[in-house]
Design a protein around this nucleic acid. Structure first.
Lengths: 111, 111
DNA sequence: CCTATAGTTGGATCGTTGTCAAACAATCGG
DNA sequence: CCGATTGTTTGACAACGATCCAACTATAGG
């Protein structure tokens, strides 16, 4: 198992996070992760409507902004929200964005 | 007094708001507005470090995203945060962003 | 009317970004 | 070892965006 490089919690920048989430495709990825928890890149990108290389680019953007973390296991890469880190760095930010997102509005917030 | 065109509250899009705030200059503008309330474009852009036309472009971006509103009175244009509208549309979003912003962190949230 | 003031608009430039396609890399199953 | 699976990387391209400068508009003051 290999963790792909991502910024430390204290190095996560607000503008980077906002920029990462200011894209419909990436917002949908984050929305799915918020309800489904950890999932593979393939599952996350299945109904995204973009080429798999485009999706890969978005995963990288989200990872480098500190929004998600990628764990490589064998052939597959599992991605998940850095919910705890984001909440520690920017309290309430992720929750309010998820609540505002059409995708996840109404869905219960996981503990 | 003339109100410059801006989207209705229900037409404010999350991705547009996030994109508008995902810029250091615009985030600083919003930070100042949050603490100073209504102010002129000149005052808002005084120590921004960008050309006045650049600042004007940012005001337009923020306005079209639904983040601020511009009132023209004579020669000067007053800009202010659409705090109430944003809170109605995306509860908690603006507050969490302002709280996360280095500029306004620690500053009290106005009523 | 003339000039200074307050911003906006248009053009030019330059870097960034979203997208796809193709090539590549790494792994797993026979 | 071979082929299928899973993603990543690279290249190309078009669109966007941030910036500055210059020109413009509109108002206020003398």
């Amino acid at each position: 198992m290999r963790l792909l490089p991502h910024p430390a919690t204290e190095d996560i920048q607000l503008t980077e996070v906002l920029r990462a989430l200011a894209d419909p495709v990436r917002l949908e990825i984050v929305g799915r992760l918020s309800t489904c928890g950890e999932m593979t890149c393939g599952d996350a990108g299945d109904q995204l409507g973009v080429h798999k290389s485009t999706a890969s680019h978005h995963y990288r953007t989200l990872r480098e902004a500190g929004v998600i973390v990628s764990k490589q296991e064998g052939r597959v890469v599992y991605i998940s929200l850095r919910r705890h880190d984001l909440d520690a760095r920017f309290p309430g930010l992720l929750d309010s964005i998820l609540a505002a997102s059409p995708m996840t509005a109404g869905a219960p917030v996981p503990l």
